[in-house]
């Protein structure tokens, strides 16, 4: 779905048509989920924040401007909520998301694909993960990513290329 098509659905949602919500959700859920997971590194917690992200986007739907990309907008909401949760957890518990065991929770991964995702994510550094996910999963342009992660466009492009090179070396057959 193109940005224009997605924004068209959002326009309908703004006008009160709740039927389009499912399409919007399925179009954006991957990038929203992985954006949160990259920050929190906890599957179950990420699901909760994912839920909050959609509810918050509904509550604020009228503040969305049609000239903006909806994906960028909802990713910004997801990112902010995840960062808030991260800070809250860090204050309250000895929560250390930098420890890799937290990725996908403490339970052992069984799915083969899940293991691949885990490996792929672990190959990359923090910043690289976020940029790769936003570009590959979210289909966001480097310019949009630069705005979200508050980094210069050149840095984002450079980091993305570096990350893809790493993945190519790791998984290139």
């Amino acid at each position: 779905m193109t940005t224009k098509q997605l924004n068209g659905l959002v326009k309908k949602l703004q006008n009160g048509n709740m039927n389009v919500f499912d399409d919007i959700y399925y179009e954006t859920k991957s990038v929203v989920y992985y954006t949160i997971l990259t920050i929190l590194k906890d599957k179950s917690l990420s699901e909760d924040i994912m839920q909050d992200t959609y509810l918050k986007s509904l509550a604020k739907i009228h503040s969305f401007k049609p000239h903006y990309s909806f994906k960028s907008w909802i990713v910004t909401i997801a990112r902010n909520l995840a960062l808030n949760e991260y800070k809250k957890r860090k204050r309250e518990l000895s929560f250390d998301p930098s420890v890799d065991e937290y990725i996908f929770g403490s339970t052992k991964s069984t799915s083969e694909k899940e293991l691949i995702v885990k490996e792929m994510i672990e190959t990359l550094e923090e910043d690289e993960r976020e940029i790769v996910i936003l570009h590959v999963i979210g289909d966001l342009k480097h310019r949009e990513i630069a705005e979200i992660v508050e980094k210069p466009l050149g840095t984002v492009t450079w980091m993305y290329n570096k990350a893809i090179k790493k993945l190519k070396n790791e998984y290139g057959e």
Binding site: S30, Y33, E47, V136, L167, K168
Partner: peptide
Amino acid sequence: IKDRMRETFESEVPDVLSK
């Protein structure tokens, strides 16, 4: 690489729509 990642990642996203 992008296609493989997208395919793999998207199949592993939990569905919270009903929630």
